[in-house]
């Protein structure tokens, strides 16, 4: 079971179909069961049968999740793989001691994968869709896997399967989500 976490400004918002829906379709097409929850509504029971978590993005002007980053502290103790997309990467950074600062990118950009990782596309540079108003300074010890001219594009925890991507893989980089899913336990498939 993959848990999709909606990080938008309220549960069942107009942003849901734009940022959770496309990720859900990739997960479903890859043969995984999934369910979604808004970050404000998550309970410990929601995590019991979960084998992977994807933190979805938000609208450009929607940064409520960052003001309420303390509500994601449960991520410090999570053992299953986590993929943070855009807002989700910002949450991972904040929870693990990194910071965010203004840094806007909109549209296609070239991402350079300096540190190869099975989750990223195999080529050293690839086009990716960006939609964010903040950029991340990753937590100490986290590896920077990819960058663009504007900042850090992909990070991973040094020891645990926790990944963050600043670009939106649901747009033209679906393989990133599919390869992340391959890190999750197979029992659901």
């Amino acid at each position: 079971m993959i848990l999709l976490l909606d990080l938008s400004y309220r549960a069942h918002s107009l942003s849901r179909d734009e940022f959770v829906g496309p990720v859900a379709r990739i997960v479903g097409r890859a043969g995984w069961e999934w369910r979604e929850t808004h970050f404000s509504e998550i309970r410990s029971d929601d995590l019991k049968d979960v084998t992977g978590i994807i933190l979805c993005g938000t609208a450009l002007k929607d940064n409520l999740f960052a003001a309420r980053a303390q509500e994601f502290s449960w991520l410090r103790n999570i053992s299953v793989p986590v993929l943070g997309i855009c807002a989700g990467m910002q949450v991972l950074c904040l929870v693990f001691g990194g910071t965010i600062r203004p840094g806007c990118e909109i549209g296609m950009t070239t991402v350079r994968a300096d540190t190869p990782d099975p989750v990223l596309p195999g080529s050293p540079a690839f086009p990716a869709y960006e939609l964010h108003s903040f950029t991340c300074d990753p937590p100490r010890g986290w590896e920077v896997m990819a960058v663009s001219d504007s900042g850090v594009q992909a990070v991973r925890h040094p020891d645990r399967p926790l990944y963050g991507v600043m670009f939106h893989p649901e747009v033209r980089n679906e393989g990133v989500v599919e390869r992340f899913l391959s890190l999750c336990k197979e029992k659901d498939r």
């Binding site: 107009l14 179909d17 734009e18 829906g21 496309p22 609208a59 002007k61 108003s133």
Partner: peptide, 15 residues
């Protein structure tokens, strides 16, 4: 929308 400090919603995006 960013320049005008407005929200932008695309509810059919990659539907």
């Amino acid at each position: 929308c960013r320049d005008l400090d407005l929200w932008c919603f695309n509810p059919l995006w990659y539907t």
